[in-house]
């Protein structure tokens, strides 16, 4: 690497345009809503910058706090489910035959490349009352009835299955949001886990088995502690976008499954309260930065104490 002052001309020519762009079209807009967050709404469109903390104070009223708590909860549950699914999947891929490895990783990545909106829509098509899941259930229900009828147990069928098939309400509730978050964010979890496990010398696992531990105890005593940096990284990388999700709760959630992004959007569109929306945006960003800081801190500590093995 060269010191910048030795090649000033090149340094300035490649440095100035992107820096100006970043400032003008990214940092200035962010700065603008940061300033807005200390403003007051005047009339329909006006904003008066009074450096009030009111918007932040309002964020701590119970309604908003509930939504924050709920967002954190939904994102956390989804992240945890991603971990529970992602760990065995990553482990399976790492120890798969070489020719399968790439294909399986690609298989995990491929849905990730398709449009977020479309993936969410695909879930709606599957889960809605007249969707494939309910359709399959109805068919199973019909088959069960027919089967019981055949043996003259229509009464039992009526008792267990009820008068007629009731479609499950799988959409527009918190569970649908969690399912959607898992669906969308699973690759975020699998990839760092894969990277961490791939780096893990397989003799550690073999040594553990050799010393008498079963697979589960090996997983808990050896794999999880040694892959911990990767696991934490995966948790944070999954949690951050899950927390900031807008489309998933918007399309899959019910009236009370609003997440932070939902109320931010509301302030900027229907409620037209930009200062409050700006304050909420910054609170969301601060949480994000906090999570990233934890990750960086972990990475530094791991790097520092020579966990190479």
């Amino acid at each position: 690497m060269d010191p910048w002052h030795k090649f000033r001309r090149i340094f300035y020519s490649v440095g100035i345009p992107p820096t100006i762009w970043l400032i003008a079209f990214f940092l200035v807009p962010l700065g603008l809503i940061w300033i807005f967050s200390f403003g007051e709404k005047v009339g329909v469109v006006g904003i008066d910058i009074t450096w009030t903390l009111d918007n932040y104070v309002r964020s701590f009223n119970p309604d908003i706090l509930t939504i924050f708590a709920k967002s954190l909860w939904l994102a956390a549950v989804a992240t945890f489910i991603c971990l529970v699914i992602g760990l065995p999947v990553a482990l399976g891929i790492v120890y798969a035959p070489n020719k399968w490895k790439g294909l399986l990783l690609l298989g995990i990545m491929l849905p990730f490349w398709t449009n977020l909106l479309i993936r969410t829509y695909a879930l709606i098509a599957v889960l809605r009352t007249r969707g494939y899941v309910n359709f399959t259930l109805e068919w199973l229900d019909g088959a069960a009835r027919w089967f019981l009828e055949l043996f003259g147990m229509g009464g039992i069928a009526l008792a267990i299955l009820g008068e007629r098939f009731q479609a499950l309400e799988l959409l527009y509730n918190d569970n649908a949001v969690i399912l959607g978050l898992v669906y969308v964010h699973l690759p975020f979890m699998v990839l760092p886990l894969y990277a961490a496990l791939e780096r893990l010398d397989r003799s550690y696992l073999e040594a553990s088995l050799d010393l008498g531990a079963g697979h589960l105890r090996t997983l808990w005593n050896v794999v999880v502690p040694l892959a911990l940096p990767g696991i934490i990284s995966g948790l944070i990388i999954t949690f951050i976008p899950a927390l900031g999700s807008f489309l998933t709760p918007d399309l899959l959630g019910g009236p009370d499954s609003a997440m932070i992004a939902t109320i931010i959007e509301r302030q900027f569109k229907s409620a037209n309260d930009w200062p409050f929306g700006s304050a909420l945006s910054f609170l969301l960003m601060y949480i994000t930065f906090g999570a990233l800081a934890i990750r960086a801190l972990m990475a530094r500590r791991r790097g520092g104490d020579g966990m190479g093995g």
């Binding site: 807009p29 603008l32 951050i240 959007e265 910054f282 960003m285």
Partner: peptide
């Protein structure tokens, strides 16, 4: 790294 929604509203405001 920042949530898309934050960038979206920042651009709207800008």
């Amino acid at each position: 790294v920042i949530p898309e929604i934050c960038m979206g509203v920042a651009m709207l405001a800008f």
